[in-house]
Design a protein around this nucleic acid. Sequence first.
DNA 1: CATGAATGAGTTTTCATTCAT
DNA 2: CATGAATGAAAACTCATTCAT
Lengths: 195, 195, 195, 195
Amino acid sequence: MNKRTEQKQNTRQLILRTAKACFIDKGFLETTTAEIASRAEIAHGTLFLHFKTKEILIVEILDNELEQVNDKIQTLIARTADISSALKVYLDFLEREEDLFSVLARELPFYPDALRGKILFREAIIRNHFQQIIKEGINRDELRDIDPIQAITFLFSTLNYYLSMRKIFREEQESVIGKFRDKVIKTFLQLIEKG
Amino acid sequence: MNKRTEQKQNTRQLILRTAKACFIDKGFLETTTAEIASRAEIAHGTLFLHFKTKEILIVEILDNELEQVNDKIQTLIARTADISSALKVYLDFLEREEDLFSVLARELPFYPDALRGKILFREAIIRNHFQQIIKEGINRDELRDIDPIQAITFLFSTLNYYLSMRKIFREEQESVIGKFRDKVIKTFLQLIEKG
Amino acid sequence: MNKRTEQKQNTRQLILRTAKACFIDKGFLETTTAEIASRAEIAHGTLFLHFKTKEILIVEILDNELEQVNDKIQTLIARTADISSALKVYLDFLEREEDLFSVLARELPFYPDALRGKILFREAIIRNHFQQIIKEGINRDELRDIDPIQAITFLFSTLNYYLSMRKIFREEQESVIGKFRDKVIKTFLQLIEKG
Amino acid sequence: MNKRTEQKQNTRQLILRTAKACFIDKGFLETTTAEIASRAEIAHGTLFLHFKTKEILIVEILDNELEQVNDKIQTLIARTADISSALKVYLDFLEREEDLFSVLARELPFYPDALRGKILFREAIIRNHFQQIIKEGINRDELRDIDPIQAITFLFSTLNYYLSMRKIFREEQESVIGKFRDKVIKTFLQLIEKG
DNA sequence: CATGAATGAGTTTTCATTCAT
DNA sequence: CATGAATGAAAACTCATTCAT
C-alpha cells in the first residue's frame, strides 16, 4: 500500500469513527453530513469522495461496527452453553454497547432495505445461538416444549423495546438494560423453564 | 348545522383522511404538509387554517384514531375474562388497524414527548386489562407465578416488533399480525400456562 | 338614519375602537387584520366590508383619532399665551396619550404617504401655535432672536425621539414623557430665553 | 490568499454590498433574503452559507459600516475643539452617509435589542464628544449654563428627525441634511451661545 | 486526493384579501 | 349586510450533493 492509499484509508477510518460518534449522539437520521465533516475536521466534500452518498456511509459504518460487535458477542456467547449464562453475557454486552444499540433499535425500520437486511442477518446469527441453547434445553427436558424461534423473538423484541424507549425508561445517565436486566432474565427463565 | 359549518367539517375531515392516508403511506415524519394539501386538492394555507401546526395535525389524527380504537378494543376485551380470548380479540383488532399501528410502532420514539405520552397512556390501559386477567389466572393457579407486568411487556414488545418490521415480514399485501398471530398466541400461552 | 345604516355605523365604530387598542398594543405594522377581527368579535371578512384594505383602515383610524386629539390639544393650548404654560399643557397631554403617540412616533415613516401627510398636517397646526407664542416672545424681547420654526423643530424632534425610544427609556410602566418632561422644559426654556 | 478564499471573500462582499443597496432602497425590515440573493445573482442558500440568519447579516452590515463610519467621524471630530467646527464636520459626514443613516433613523426602534444597543453605543461615543466640547464652552463662559446632555439630545433628535423624514423633506435626489444643515447649525449655536 | 463554496429544491408557517353562503 | 373558509404568494431557513480550484 503506497502512501496515498494509506492516507486515504486514514481519512476513511476517521470519517467512520466520527460518523459513529455522531450517530450515537443523535442517530443517523438527524445527523447531517456537514456535521460529521466538521466534527472530523475534514472538508464537507471529502466525505463524498469516500462515500458517494450519505446512505452509503450509513451502510458502511454500521456494517463495520456490527461486524466487530458481532465477533465479540459470538466469542463471548460461544463459551456459554446454558441459557442463563448466555443471557447474562448478552445483556452485559448490550449494556456496554447500549449507546449504539438504542439508536439502532429506534432507527432500524428507517434504514435502506439492504442495510436493514445486513443488520438483521447479523442479529440472526446471535438469535440462532440462543435458539440452539434452548433446543438443547428442551431436549434435556429442562425447558418447556416451546418453539425456540418464537421464544427468542419474545426475548429480543423486549430488549429492542427497552432500547428504543431508552429516553423514557432510563433516568439520568443510567443504562436501560442495566435497569431491567434482572427482571427480564428472571421472567424469561421462569417462562421457559419447566416446573 | 348550516352549510358553512358542514363545509368546514368536510374540509377538516378531508384533511384528516388525506393526512392519515399519507401517514400510512410514508409515515408521519416523512409526510410534508404540502403533500397532504396537494393530495387533498386544497391550498397549502388551508391546512394551517384547520390545524395550526403540523404537530397539532399529527396529534389530532392519532388522538382521534386512538380514541376510537381504544374504545373499540376496550369494549371487545372487557367481555373477555380469559387470556386466550382476550389475545384473540386484541390481535384481530390489531390486524384490522395494522396500517396505522405499524407506522406508530416505527415512529413512536420520534414523536414529541406529549404525543408519545398520550399514546403510551392509551396503550397502558389495554396492557392493564391483560395484566388483570393474568393476575386472576395466577390466583386461580392456572398460570405460572410470574410478574404480570413483565409478561405483558414481552407480549406487547413482540407485537410491536412485528408491526415495526412489517415491511420485511409481510409478503404482498398480507398482514403481519395475521401471519404471526397463531404462533404468538400459542407460544405466549405455553409460556405462561402451568404444566 | 335607518336601522341598517345605524348597525353598520356601530360595527364600524367597533372596528375602529378595537383596531386602536391593537395599534396601541403592538403598532399597526405588527397588528394583523385577523387579530383585530377576533378581538372585535366580528368576522374577519366584515372588516374588509367596512375598510377595503388594511391601509384604508389605518388611515381612517388614525385620522379619526388625531382629529379628536387635535381638537382637545388646540382647545387646551389656545388658552395659553406664554411658552412655559403651553409646554406644560402639551407635555401633560402627550403623557396622557403616550401609548398612542409612541407608536405613531415609531411608525410614522412607514405609513402610506397620504396618511403621513395628514398626520404631519395636524401636527403642523400645533407646531404653529408654539411658533406664534415664540414669535410674540421674541417681539416682546423676552426670547432670543431665533427662527421659531427651527426652535420648535428642536423641541418636537426631541419629544418624538423620547416617544419612539420609549421601550428603552422608560422603566416598568412609567411614562417616558413624565420621566423627561422637567428636563426638557427646563432646557428648552433656558435655550430660548434671553439673559 | 488563495483563489478559493479570495472567491469566498468576493461573494461575501458581494452579498454585503448588495444587501446594503437593498437595505438603502427599502430598509432592512422590508428587504427579503430572496431579494438580496436574486439581486446578487447567487443562490438563495448561498446567502445563508455566509450569514446564518438574516439578523446576523443585518448586524454584520451595520456593524461593519458603523465601525468604519465611527472611526472616520471620530478622527474628524477629534481635530475640532470648538462646537461650530465639530458641527460642520459631523453634518458633512452625515450628508455623505445619508442613504444609510436615514434608513437607520427610521428603523432603529424595530431592530433587535442587541443591535439597537450596539448602534446606540456607537452613537453615544459621538454624543459624548459633543458634550465635552459644550462643557468646555460652558467652563470658558462662552456657552450658556445648560445641561450638555440635554442640549445634545435636542441636536441629535433633530438630525434624527430630518433623517427619518427624508422622503418628505428632500426634493429630487437632494440631501436632507444638506438642505437643513445651515439652519440647524445656526439655530443650535444661537441657542447655546451666550449673549 | 482534498477542499469548501455554491447550489436549489424543499421545509413549515403567515396573512391580506376574496367570495360563496 | 355579515360571515368565515379558502386562497396562494410570500417568508426564512436547511441540507445532501456537485465541481472548480
